[in-house]
């Protein structure tokens, strides 16, 4: 298993002349960095910068290093950084299996690819969901499939954007557990943006508040 790491080196993001935040952090494989802060503090801007969707209105200085490689200005589709939002966002026109196949990198025969997907589903006991329409799944199931989809694309890091806030309390703990376990298992650095103290504590990693990084 490869050890991945995400390093935000002297990262400064500003809108016009106003500096939003200045961050320097290193996330090791399997570690979760929780980022907190009130709305407007720049949480989603930070995620956009790392994933590559920063609007040109912002300026970004410093470096984003993924496994030691500078990806600051790389095309988002080449970065291999997995994204998970509050909503699972499974593609509604594809079956669960198709969603997963879509994420799987190129290569292999059709049969091999399907087998890989099934194996992944089996591993988390969701095998029977393969042919289903994603919109018929429960919220917890959708979230777990979304994570599986992400992992199948062989990411080098995970970004979580309020990933559990649409789930009810009971489910929330279980899904959270599941996500962090998978991240550790795959040796992925995780950056999680949240406003929920419980989420941040459950992650067991360092917690930073963007307000303290002006």
């Amino acid at each position: 298993m490869v050890e991945h790491s995400l390093h935000l080196k002297d990262l400064r993001i500003s809108l016009g002349d106003e500096l939003l935040f200045h961050l320097d952090a290193e996330i090791k494989a399997g570690e979760v960095l929780s980022v907190m802060g009130p709305s407007g503090s720049g949480k989603s801007t930070l995620l956009n910068a790392i994933s590559g969707f920063l609007s040109p209105r912002f300026t970004c200085e410093g470096q984003i290093l993924l496994d030691g490689q500078d990806v600051t200005h790389q095309d988002p589709s080449l970065r291999k950084i997995g994204l998970m939002f509050q909503d699972p966002l499974l593609f509604p026109h594809m079956s669960v299996e198709d969603n997963l196949l879509f994420a799987l990198p190129r290569g292999g025969s059709k049969h091999e690819r399907c087998e890989k997907v099934r194996e992944k589903l089996r591993a988390v006991n969701l095998e029977e969901l393969g042919p289903r329409d994603p919109l018929t799944l429960s919220g917890g199931q959708q979230s777990r499939i979304a994570l599986m989809r992400l992992l199948l694309s062989n990411p080098r890091a995970l970004l979580l954007d309020e990933p559990f806030s649409s789930l009810d309390v009971e489910l929330r703990a279980r899904v959270r557990q599941f996500v962090f376990a998978q991240a550790r298992e795959n040796r992925l650095p995780v950056l999680m943006v949240t406003h929920d103290q419980a989420d941040a504590e459950a992650a067991g990693g360092p917690i930073i508040n963007l307000l303290n990084h002006k």
Binding site: G52, P76, S77, R79, F91, H93, F102, A103, L150, S153
Partner: peptide
């Protein structure tokens, strides 16, 4: 929802592929 496209891009798909495989079918 632009997050669908961001999700797909983060999965390593090119813009052209996203256009044909995600946007067009979703806008069918």
């Amino acid at each position: 929802d632009p997050r669908y496209m961001q999700t797909a891009a983060a999965l390593g798909k090119s813009q052209n592929r996203i256009f044909f495989q995600i946007k067009l079918p979703m806008l069918l």
